[in-house]
């Protein structure tokens, strides 16, 4: 259900920042938020009708796999290294689990697989709009 909020944030960003009709928008989302892409697109296609800027827009989604770095021991690790930790959070909280609703909470729930520190950062975990194609064919790189 949270996918509707994410879809609305994309529609809102487009209507606030563009006055030409948008044809295509590429949204990058972090893998560990486990958003349902079909539901996200369905919500976007419903919400885009509200505004002429977005009514013809197609939503593309790119899922980014973050690379984590521990600030304590300096080692890097990937999502697959903390898969069990993520699954534990998912199974103890259910469908609307904290990392799905608020991916930025990840350091509170995940820890470095090498030293156990929660002082971790992730490159490529932010949700952002990567590019937007508007009516006259221009591609606006937005990141």
């Amino acid at each position: 259900m949270h996918e509707w909020s994410v879809a609305y944030s994309v529609v809102k960003t487009l209507t606030e920042n563009f006055n030409k009709k948008v044809l295509k928008v590429t949204l990058v989302i972090p893998q560990f938020s486990f958003l349902d892409i079909d539901l996200l697109k369905e919500a976007f296609n419903e919400l885009k009708k509200e505004n002429p800027v977005t009514e013809n827009a197609e939503l593309q989604v790119r899922i980014a796999e973050p690379i984590f770095k521990c600030r304590n021991c300096g080692r890097e690790f990937r999502l697959s290294d903390v898969e069990k930790q993520i699954n534990d959070v998912r199974s103890s909280y259910g469908e609307e689990y904290p990392l799905h609703l608020m991916p930025e909470l990840f350091p509170a729930f995940l820890k470095c697989p090498y030293c156990g520190s929660h002082d971790i950062e992730a490159k490529g975990q932010e949700m952002y709009i990567e590019n937007v194609v508007v009516e006259d064919g221009a591609v606006a790189r937005t990141s």
Binding site: S5, Y8, T13, E126, M127
Partner: peptide, 8 residues
């Protein structure tokens, strides 16, 4: 562009 900030 930050959809999160726009939505907030």
């Amino acid at each position: 562009m930050e959809p999160l900030r726009e939505l907030a």
